[in-house]
Design a protein around this nucleic acid. Structure first.
Lengths: 197, 197
DNA sequence: CGAGCGCTTGATTGAGTTCAAAAATCGTGG
DNA sequence: CCACGATTTTTGAACTCAATCAAGCGCTCG
Protein backbone atom coordinates (compact mmCIF):
# COMPACT_ATOMS: atom_id res chain seq x y z
CA UNK A 1 0.00 0.00 0.00
CA UNK A 2 1.77 3.11 -1.27
CA UNK A 3 5.11 1.40 -1.06
CA UNK A 4 6.39 3.20 -4.08
CA UNK A 5 5.24 6.52 -2.69
CA UNK A 6 6.96 6.11 0.66
CA UNK A 7 10.04 4.65 -0.92
CA UNK A 8 10.29 7.55 -3.36
CA UNK A 9 10.49 10.13 -0.60
CA UNK A 10 12.62 8.03 1.69
CA UNK A 11 15.13 7.38 -1.04
CA UNK A 12 15.24 10.98 -2.20
CA UNK A 13 15.22 12.80 1.09
CA UNK A 14 15.86 10.26 3.81
CA UNK A 15 12.55 11.06 5.37
CA UNK A 16 11.23 8.66 7.98
CA UNK A 17 7.93 6.84 7.94
CA UNK A 18 6.84 8.83 10.98
CA UNK A 19 7.58 12.11 9.25
CA UNK A 20 5.55 11.00 6.25
CA UNK A 21 2.74 10.11 8.63
CA UNK A 22 2.83 13.62 10.04
CA UNK A 23 2.03 14.95 6.58
CA UNK A 24 -0.84 12.63 5.93
CA UNK A 25 -3.41 15.43 5.92
CA UNK A 26 -1.62 16.74 2.82
CA UNK A 27 -2.02 13.69 0.61
CA UNK A 28 -4.42 10.88 -0.01
CA UNK A 29 -4.59 7.72 -2.01
CA UNK A 30 -7.03 7.36 -4.88
CA UNK A 31 -7.85 4.50 -7.18
CA UNK A 32 -8.77 5.44 -10.71
CA UNK A 33 -9.98 3.28 -13.56
CA UNK A 34 -8.78 3.46 -17.12
CA UNK A 35 -10.39 6.52 -18.66
CA UNK A 36 -11.11 8.33 -15.40
CA UNK A 37 -10.19 12.01 -15.35
CA UNK A 38 -8.01 13.63 -12.74
CA UNK A 39 -8.18 17.05 -14.39
CA UNK A 40 -10.16 18.62 -17.22
CA UNK A 41 -9.46 21.64 -19.38
CA UNK A 42 -10.86 24.73 -17.72
CA UNK A 43 -10.59 23.17 -14.28
CA UNK A 44 -8.02 23.99 -11.65
CA UNK A 45 -5.18 21.64 -10.89
CA UNK A 46 -5.23 21.37 -7.11
CA UNK A 47 -2.85 18.46 -6.83
CA UNK A 48 0.35 16.95 -7.95
CA UNK A 49 -0.17 13.31 -8.82
CA UNK A 50 2.26 10.63 -7.78
CA UNK A 51 1.65 7.41 -9.66
CA UNK A 52 1.82 4.51 -7.21
CA UNK A 53 0.86 2.05 -9.92
CA UNK A 54 -0.60 2.23 -13.39
CA UNK A 55 -0.22 4.85 -16.06
CA UNK A 56 -1.70 8.31 -16.60
CA UNK A 57 -1.24 11.04 -19.16
CA UNK A 58 -1.64 14.79 -19.56
CA UNK A 59 -2.81 16.20 -22.87
CA UNK A 60 -4.30 19.25 -24.55
CA UNK A 61 -6.95 19.44 -27.25
CA UNK A 62 -6.26 21.99 -29.96
CA UNK A 63 -8.60 24.11 -32.07
CA UNK A 64 -9.13 21.27 -34.54
CA UNK A 65 -10.11 18.89 -31.80
CA UNK A 66 -6.83 17.00 -31.92
CA UNK A 67 -5.16 15.64 -28.81
CA UNK A 68 -1.56 16.47 -28.03
CA UNK A 69 -0.04 14.45 -25.24
CA UNK A 70 2.27 16.48 -23.04
CA UNK A 71 3.48 13.78 -20.70
CA UNK A 72 3.01 10.21 -19.61
CA UNK A 73 3.55 9.14 -16.02
CA UNK A 74 3.83 5.56 -14.83
CA UNK A 75 4.95 4.13 -11.49
CA UNK A 76 7.06 6.51 -9.40
CA UNK A 77 6.46 9.48 -11.62
CA UNK A 78 5.05 12.82 -10.60
CA UNK A 79 2.63 14.61 -12.88
CA UNK A 80 0.89 17.93 -12.56
CA UNK A 81 -0.12 20.95 -14.57
CA UNK A 82 2.39 23.14 -12.83
CA UNK A 83 1.12 26.30 -14.48
CA UNK A 84 -2.39 25.80 -13.22
CA UNK A 85 -1.34 24.61 -9.79
CA UNK A 86 1.35 27.19 -9.22
CA UNK A 87 -0.28 30.25 -10.76
CA UNK A 88 -3.82 29.30 -9.80
CA UNK A 89 -4.97 29.53 -13.37
CA UNK A 90 -7.53 27.38 -15.10
CA UNK A 91 -5.83 24.55 -16.90
CA UNK A 92 -5.40 24.00 -20.63
CA UNK A 93 -4.95 20.29 -20.07
CA UNK A 94 -6.68 17.05 -19.39
CA UNK A 95 -5.22 14.36 -17.18
CA UNK A 96 -6.68 10.88 -17.32
CA UNK A 97 -5.76 7.28 -16.65
CA UNK A 98 -4.49 5.05 -19.45
CA UNK A 99 -4.55 2.01 -17.17
CA UNK A 100 -6.34 1.31 -13.91
CA UNK A 101 -4.06 3.16 -11.51
CA UNK A 102 -3.39 4.04 -7.92
CA UNK A 103 -2.55 7.70 -7.58
CA UNK A 104 -1.37 9.65 -4.56
CA UNK A 105 -2.85 13.12 -4.70
CA UNK A 106 -0.54 15.69 -3.15
CA UNK A 107 -2.14 18.90 -1.95
CA UNK A 108 -0.60 22.21 -2.88
CA UNK A 109 0.76 22.49 0.65
CA UNK A 110 2.56 19.16 0.44
CA UNK A 111 5.81 20.47 -0.96
CA UNK A 112 6.01 23.22 1.65
CA UNK A 113 5.08 20.71 4.31
CA UNK A 114 7.75 18.24 3.42
CA UNK A 115 10.32 21.01 3.16
CA UNK A 116 9.40 22.07 6.69
CA UNK A 117 9.86 18.53 7.94
CA UNK A 118 13.06 18.05 6.02
CA UNK A 119 14.65 21.13 4.43
CA UNK A 120 16.69 19.07 2.00
CA UNK A 121 13.52 18.77 -0.03
CA UNK A 122 13.97 22.36 -1.02
CA UNK A 123 16.89 21.15 -3.13
CA UNK A 124 15.05 18.14 -4.38
CA UNK A 125 12.13 20.22 -5.53
CA UNK A 126 14.50 22.56 -7.29
CA UNK A 127 16.12 19.62 -8.98
CA UNK A 128 12.77 18.33 -10.18
CA UNK A 129 12.00 21.72 -11.68
CA UNK A 130 15.32 21.88 -13.46
CA UNK A 131 14.88 18.38 -14.74
CA UNK A 132 11.48 19.29 -16.07
CA UNK A 133 12.95 22.27 -17.88
CA UNK A 134 15.71 20.17 -19.37
CA UNK A 135 13.19 17.64 -20.61
CA UNK A 136 10.93 20.26 -22.20
CA UNK A 137 13.88 21.85 -23.92
CA UNK A 138 14.90 18.53 -25.43
CA UNK A 139 11.39 18.06 -26.67
CA UNK A 140 11.38 21.46 -28.36
CA UNK A 141 14.68 20.73 -30.02
CA UNK A 142 13.35 17.39 -31.22
CA UNK A 143 10.28 18.97 -32.74
CA UNK A 144 12.33 21.59 -34.53
CA UNK A 145 15.30 19.54 -35.65
CA UNK A 146 14.32 15.90 -35.96
CA UNK A 147 12.16 13.80 -38.24
CA UNK A 148 9.26 11.71 -36.99
CA UNK A 149 11.46 8.63 -37.25
CA UNK A 150 14.24 10.09 -35.15
CA UNK A 151 11.81 11.17 -32.48
CA UNK A 152 10.25 7.71 -32.46
CA UNK A 153 13.60 5.99 -32.06
CA UNK A 154 14.54 8.29 -29.22
CA UNK A 155 11.27 7.64 -27.50
CA UNK A 156 11.52 3.86 -27.57
CA UNK A 157 15.10 4.18 -26.42
CA UNK A 158 14.25 6.47 -23.54
CA UNK A 159 11.01 4.80 -22.46
CA UNK A 160 11.15 1.17 -23.58
CA UNK A 161 8.68 0.21 -20.86
CA UNK A 162 6.13 2.80 -21.95
CA UNK A 163 6.45 1.66 -25.54
CA UNK A 164 4.83 -1.61 -24.55
CA UNK A 165 2.06 -0.11 -22.46
CA UNK A 166 1.03 2.97 -24.40
CA UNK A 167 -1.23 2.47 -27.42
CA UNK A 168 0.43 3.44 -30.65
CA UNK A 169 -1.91 6.29 -31.43
CA UNK A 170 -1.05 7.89 -28.10
CA UNK A 171 2.63 7.60 -28.78
CA UNK A 172 1.97 9.29 -32.10
CA UNK A 173 0.16 12.06 -30.28
CA UNK A 174 3.12 12.47 -27.94
CA UNK A 175 5.59 12.53 -30.81
CA UNK A 176 3.57 15.10 -32.71
CA UNK A 177 2.57 12.98 -35.72
CA UNK A 178 -0.61 11.25 -36.85
CA UNK A 179 -1.18 7.58 -36.03
CA UNK A 180 -0.98 6.82 -39.76
CA UNK A 181 2.44 8.40 -40.01
CA UNK A 182 3.77 6.53 -37.02
CA UNK A 183 2.49 3.30 -38.49
CA UNK A 184 4.44 4.01 -41.67
CA UNK A 185 7.55 4.99 -39.75
CA UNK A 186 7.43 1.62 -38.04
CA UNK A 187 6.79 -0.26 -41.26
CA UNK A 188 9.73 1.43 -42.94
CA UNK A 189 12.02 0.71 -40.02
CA UNK A 190 10.97 -2.94 -40.14
CA UNK A 191 11.64 -3.13 -43.87
CA UNK A 192 15.12 -1.80 -43.34
CA UNK A 193 15.50 -4.85 -41.09
CA UNK A 194 15.53 -2.87 -37.91
CA UNK A 195 14.57 -5.05 -34.99
CA UNK A 196 13.71 -3.48 -31.66
CA UNK A 197 12.43 -6.62 -29.99
CA UNK B 1 25.24 51.94 -14.59
CA UNK B 2 23.35 48.69 -14.01
CA UNK B 3 20.19 50.57 -13.17
CA UNK B 4 18.03 47.90 -14.71
CA UNK B 5 19.84 45.22 -12.78
CA UNK B 6 19.43 46.87 -9.41
CA UNK B 7 15.91 47.89 -10.14
CA UNK B 8 14.98 44.35 -11.16
CA UNK B 9 15.99 42.91 -7.81
CA UNK B 10 14.70 45.80 -5.77
CA UNK B 11 11.32 45.62 -7.44
CA UNK B 12 11.07 41.87 -7.15
CA UNK B 13 12.41 41.31 -3.69
CA UNK B 14 12.62 44.67 -1.95
CA UNK B 15 16.33 44.23 -1.55
CA UNK B 16 18.34 47.30 -0.63
CA UNK B 17 21.25 48.79 -2.50
CA UNK B 18 23.51 47.90 0.43
CA UNK B 19 22.42 44.28 0.33
CA UNK B 20 23.14 44.14 -3.38
CA UNK B 21 26.55 45.60 -2.68
CA UNK B 22 27.22 42.82 -0.20
CA UNK B 23 26.80 40.33 -3.04
CA UNK B 24 29.08 42.09 -5.44
CA UNK B 25 31.63 39.30 -5.42
CA UNK B 26 28.95 37.13 -7.00
CA UNK B 27 28.28 39.18 -10.11
CA UNK B 28 30.09 41.41 -12.50
CA UNK B 29 29.30 43.66 -15.39
CA UNK B 30 30.48 42.84 -18.87
CA UNK B 31 30.23 44.68 -22.16
CA UNK B 32 29.84 42.51 -25.22
CA UNK B 33 29.78 43.46 -28.85
CA UNK B 34 27.38 42.13 -31.44
CA UNK B 35 28.49 38.63 -32.29
CA UNK B 36 30.49 38.01 -29.12
CA UNK B 37 29.90 34.67 -27.47
CA UNK B 38 28.95 34.19 -23.84
CA UNK B 39 28.73 30.41 -24.16
CA UNK B 40 29.64 27.84 -26.78
CA UNK B 41 28.42 24.31 -27.35
CA UNK B 42 30.54 21.91 -25.36
CA UNK B 43 31.44 24.58 -22.83
CA UNK B 44 30.09 24.90 -19.33
CA UNK B 45 27.57 27.53 -18.44
CA UNK B 46 28.97 29.10 -15.29
CA UNK B 47 26.66 32.09 -15.18
CA UNK B 48 23.17 33.33 -15.50
CA UNK B 49 23.10 36.39 -17.70
CA UNK B 50 21.04 39.43 -16.85
CA UNK B 51 20.69 41.74 -19.82
CA UNK B 52 21.23 45.30 -18.64
CA UNK B 53 20.97 46.61 -22.19
CA UNK B 54 21.07 45.14 -25.65
CA UNK B 55 19.90 41.79 -26.91
CA UNK B 56 21.31 38.28 -26.73
CA UNK B 57 20.14 34.86 -27.83
CA UNK B 58 20.62 31.19 -27.02
CA UNK B 59 20.59 28.63 -29.82
CA UNK B 60 21.56 25.11 -30.76
CA UNK B 61 23.05 23.81 -33.98
CA UNK B 62 21.59 20.53 -35.18
CA UNK B 63 23.14 17.66 -37.13
CA UNK B 64 22.53 19.43 -40.44
CA UNK B 65 24.27 22.55 -39.25
CA UNK B 66 21.06 24.49 -38.82
CA UNK B 67 20.57 26.94 -35.98
CA UNK B 68 17.56 26.68 -33.70
CA UNK B 69 17.04 29.65 -31.44
CA UNK B 70 15.84 28.67 -28.00
CA UNK B 71 15.39 32.08 -26.48
CA UNK B 72 15.97 35.77 -26.94
CA UNK B 73 16.71 38.04 -24.01
CA UNK B 74 16.62 41.82 -24.12
CA UNK B 75 16.72 44.41 -21.31
CA UNK B 76 15.70 43.05 -17.91
CA UNK B 77 15.64 39.45 -19.02
CA UNK B 78 17.57 36.59 -17.51
CA UNK B 79 19.10 33.96 -19.74
CA UNK B 80 21.06 30.85 -18.95
CA UNK B 81 21.47 27.26 -19.99
CA UNK B 82 19.94 25.99 -16.81
CA UNK B 83 20.73 22.39 -17.62
CA UNK B 84 24.40 23.04 -17.99
CA UNK B 85 24.60 25.42 -15.05
CA UNK B 86 22.49 23.38 -12.67
CA UNK B 87 23.65 19.89 -13.53
CA UNK B 88 27.21 20.86 -14.34
CA UNK B 89 27.00 19.32 -17.76
CA UNK B 90 28.59 20.56 -20.94
CA UNK B 91 26.16 22.69 -22.85
CA UNK B 92 24.37 21.95 -26.12
CA UNK B 93 23.90 25.63 -26.75
CA UNK B 94 25.53 28.79 -27.93
CA UNK B 95 24.79 32.17 -26.41
CA UNK B 96 25.86 35.27 -28.28
CA UNK B 97 24.99 38.94 -28.61
CA UNK B 98 22.65 40.15 -31.33
CA UNK B 99 23.33 43.77 -30.44
CA UNK B 100 26.14 45.42 -28.51
CA UNK B 101 25.04 44.69 -24.98
CA UNK B 102 25.77 45.15 -21.32
CA UNK B 103 25.36 41.91 -19.46
CA UNK B 104 25.52 41.21 -15.74
CA UNK B 105 27.06 37.83 -15.19
CA UNK B 106 25.67 36.11 -12.13
CA UNK B 107 27.83 33.42 -10.55
CA UNK B 108 26.29 30.11 -9.66
CA UNK B 109 26.35 31.15 -6.01
CA UNK B 110 24.37 34.31 -6.67
CA UNK B 111 20.93 32.81 -6.23
CA UNK B 112 21.89 31.15 -2.95
CA UNK B 113 23.56 34.36 -1.87
CA UNK B 114 20.57 36.56 -2.51
CA UNK B 115 18.29 34.03 -0.83
CA UNK B 116 20.50 34.22 2.24
CA UNK B 117 20.29 37.98 2.25
CA UNK B 118 16.58 37.97 1.62
CA UNK B 119 14.75 34.66 1.90
CA UNK B 120 11.80 35.87 -0.17
CA UNK B 121 13.99 35.25 -3.19
CA UNK B 122 13.44 31.60 -2.63
CA UNK B 123 9.89 32.17 -3.82
CA UNK B 124 10.92 34.44 -6.61
CA UNK B 125 13.35 31.90 -7.95
CA UNK B 126 10.67 29.27 -7.80
CA UNK B 127 8.33 31.54 -9.67
CA UNK B 128 10.93 32.11 -12.38
CA UNK B 129 11.32 28.38 -12.80
CA UNK B 130 7.59 27.84 -13.06
CA UNK B 131 7.29 30.63 -15.54
CA UNK B 132 10.01 29.09 -17.61
CA UNK B 133 8.20 25.78 -17.61
CA UNK B 134 4.94 27.41 -18.62
CA UNK B 135 6.67 29.17 -21.47
CA UNK B 136 8.36 26.03 -22.77
CA UNK B 137 5.10 24.12 -22.60
CA UNK B 138 3.39 26.79 -24.70
CA UNK B 139 6.14 26.56 -27.23
CA UNK B 140 5.77 22.79 -27.50
CA UNK B 141 2.07 23.11 -27.99
CA UNK B 142 2.61 25.73 -30.67
CA UNK B 143 5.04 23.51 -32.55
CA UNK B 144 2.65 20.56 -32.44
CA UNK B 145 -0.67 22.30 -33.03
CA UNK B 146 -0.11 25.54 -34.92
CA UNK B 147 0.91 26.57 -38.42
CA UNK B 148 3.91 28.77 -39.13
CA UNK B 149 1.56 31.70 -39.65
CA UNK B 150 -0.16 31.24 -36.31
CA UNK B 151 3.15 31.01 -34.52
CA UNK B 152 4.38 34.13 -36.25
CA UNK B 153 1.29 36.11 -35.29
CA UNK B 154 1.61 35.01 -31.70
CA UNK B 155 5.23 36.00 -31.64
CA UNK B 156 4.72 39.53 -32.92
CA UNK B 157 1.84 39.88 -30.50
CA UNK B 158 3.84 38.69 -27.54
CA UNK B 159 7.12 40.39 -28.37
CA UNK B 160 6.34 43.41 -30.57
CA UNK B 161 9.56 45.08 -29.45
CA UNK B 162 11.70 42.10 -30.41
CA UNK B 163 10.00 41.95 -33.79
CA UNK B 164 11.66 45.23 -34.67
CA UNK B 165 15.09 44.37 -33.35
CA UNK B 166 15.56 40.74 -34.34
CA UNK B 167 16.49 40.00 -37.95
CA UNK B 168 13.83 38.08 -39.77
CA UNK B 169 15.93 34.99 -40.31
CA UNK B 170 16.45 34.72 -36.56
CA UNK B 171 12.78 35.00 -35.90
CA UNK B 172 12.29 32.21 -38.42
CA UNK B 173 14.83 30.15 -36.55
CA UNK B 174 12.97 30.76 -33.29
CA UNK B 175 9.63 29.87 -34.86
CA UNK B 176 11.01 26.68 -36.35
CA UNK B 177 10.70 27.54 -40.05
CA UNK B 178 13.10 28.58 -42.80
CA UNK B 179 13.67 32.26 -43.56
CA UNK B 180 12.08 31.68 -46.96
CA UNK B 181 8.93 30.32 -45.39
CA UNK B 182 8.64 33.20 -42.97
CA UNK B 183 9.08 35.63 -45.81
CA UNK B 184 6.18 33.97 -47.63
CA UNK B 185 4.03 33.93 -44.51
CA UNK B 186 4.52 37.68 -44.24
CA UNK B 187 3.81 38.27 -47.92
CA UNK B 188 0.59 36.27 -47.70
CA UNK B 189 -0.52 38.12 -44.58
CA UNK B 190 0.14 41.42 -46.35
CA UNK B 191 -1.84 40.34 -49.40
CA UNK B 192 -4.79 39.49 -47.22
CA UNK B 193 -4.55 43.17 -46.26
CA UNK B 194 -3.29 42.47 -42.79
CA UNK B 195 -1.39 45.46 -41.48
CA UNK B 196 0.72 45.15 -38.36
CA UNK B 197 2.57 48.42 -38.79
C1' DC C 1 -20.97 -12.70 -32.42
C1' DG C 2 -21.06 -8.21 -33.96
C1' DA C 3 -19.79 -3.37 -33.19
C1' DG C 4 -16.22 -0.50 -32.32
C1' DC C 5 -11.60 0.55 -31.79
C1' DG C 6 -6.88 0.38 -33.12
C1' DC C 7 -3.67 -0.49 -36.67
C1' DT C 8 -2.38 -0.68 -41.47
C1' DT C 9 -2.30 0.57 -46.31
C1' DG C 10 -3.19 3.32 -50.42
C1' DA C 11 -4.03 7.59 -52.94
C1' DT C 12 -3.96 12.31 -52.74
C1' DT C 13 -3.07 16.80 -50.89
C1' DG C 14 -0.60 20.40 -48.75
C1' DA C 15 2.51 23.05 -45.74
C1' DG C 16 6.94 23.91 -45.60
C1' DT C 17 11.81 22.85 -47.45
C1' DT C 18 15.39 23.11 -50.72
C1' DC C 19 17.98 25.12 -54.24
C1' DA C 20 18.85 28.99 -57.04
C1' DA C 21 18.99 33.62 -58.04
C1' DA C 22 17.39 38.39 -57.99
C1' DA C 23 16.32 42.49 -55.24
C1' DA C 24 16.82 45.19 -51.21
C1' DT C 25 19.33 46.66 -47.23
C1' DC C 26 23.23 47.31 -44.34
C1' DG C 27 27.71 48.70 -42.96
C1' DT C 28 32.16 50.10 -43.55
C1' DG C 29 36.21 52.14 -45.50
C1' DG C 30 37.89 55.40 -48.66
C1' DC D 1 28.85 60.83 -48.03
C1' DC D 2 29.15 57.61 -51.41
C1' DA D 3 30.22 53.12 -53.19
C1' DC D 4 30.94 48.52 -52.97
C1' DG D 5 30.70 44.05 -50.89
C1' DA D 6 28.22 41.36 -47.71
C1' DT D 7 24.23 40.09 -45.59
C1' DT D 8 19.24 39.80 -45.54
C1' DT D 9 14.92 39.40 -47.73
C1' DT D 10 12.19 38.08 -51.49
C1' DT D 11 10.62 35.23 -55.29
C1' DG D 12 10.26 31.08 -58.19
C1' DA D 13 10.12 26.13 -59.12
C1' DA D 14 10.68 21.52 -57.82
C1' DC D 15 10.44 18.50 -54.22
C1' DT D 16 9.50 16.02 -49.62
C1' DC D 17 7.71 14.70 -45.42
C1' DA D 18 3.85 14.20 -43.12
C1' DA D 19 -1.34 15.09 -43.08
C1' DT D 20 -5.69 13.93 -44.82
C1' DC D 21 -9.21 11.09 -46.62
C1' DA D 22 -10.85 6.61 -47.34
C1' DA D 23 -11.03 1.80 -46.94
C1' DG D 24 -10.03 -2.77 -45.00
C1' DC D 25 -8.35 -5.90 -41.50
C1' DG D 26 -8.14 -7.97 -36.91
C1' DC D 27 -8.93 -8.08 -32.28
C1' DT D 28 -11.43 -7.62 -28.00
C1' DC D 29 -14.94 -6.99 -24.95
C1' DG D 30 -19.66 -6.38 -24.00
Amino acid sequence: MLNNFYHFFQANGKISMEEMESLKSLYHREEVKKGDFLLREGGHCHHTFFVESGLIRMYAIDGQGKEHIVQFACENWLLSDRSSAYFDESSDYFIDAIEDSVVVMLDKGFVDGIIEVNPSFQRINERLLHNHIRHLQKRIHGLMAETAEERYLEFINLYPDLTLRVPQWMMASYLGVTPESLSRVRRDLAKRNFKSY
